[in-house]
């Protein structure tokens, strides 16, 4: 069932257009990478603060609230530029284990961010013991894994 869905995606006229249009894939991949930088920066500034590093003179919840929208909009940009790449190379993605690991970790990352990380980052500082450090460490680990698997789809599939 999942395979036929990916075959359907691969067969869409848009997917064919993406593959035939010389500049479509490079432009979308470049935009994806720029969005990744925006996302990584927004995540890292807050995660480093959770770890007790970086901008420690600024209250954590203030930093987290300010960068939350940058993180969300960068993720939207990553999705908008990532989806056409999946559509145009759907079968390559389907047969790549890195693609599935990436997707699983993205789901875990989103759930983790909108439940635990956000709650810890928005909480009053000094009330959660060592949890902010654990959360910051996990968040960096999750999103680094996503970047690594994303890169390996193109290199080892």
């Amino acid at each position: 069932m999942m395979q036929s869905f990916f075959e359907w995606m691969q067969g869409l006229p848009f997917s064919a257009w993406m593959l035939e249009e010389t500049w479509a894939s490079p432009i979308i991949q470049c935009a994806h990478l720029v969005a990744l930088v925006g996302f990584a920066g927004a995540v890292l500034v807050v995660d480093m603060r959770l770890l007790g590093r970086g901008l420690i003179k600024t209250p954590l919840n203030q930093l987290a609230r300010e960068l939350d929208r940058w993180m969300i909009w960068s993720f939207v940009a990553l999705f908008v530029t990532g989806a056409p790449q999946v559509l145009s190379t759907a079968l390559k993605q389907y047969y790549s284990p890195f693609f599935w690991w990436k997707m699983q970790i993205i789901v875990i990352g989103l759930l983790f961010n909108f439940t635990i990380r956000r709650r810890v980052a928005f909480a009053k500082e000094g009330t959660l013991g060592h949890w902010p450090k654990v959360v910051g460490f996990l968040s960096i680990g999750i999103w680094t894994s996503v970047s690594v698997y994303a890169r390996l789809i193109g290199l080892l599939s």
Binding site: L36, V37, G38, F39, A40, G41, A42, V43, L44, V45, L67, W70, T144, S147, V148, R151
Partner: peptide, 13 residues
């Protein structure tokens, strides 16, 4: 790529 995220991400902000 990962180190680019660390460098360029922080410089961008």
């Amino acid at each position: 790529v990962v180190s680019m995220c660390l460098f360029a991400g922080l410089i961008a902000y």
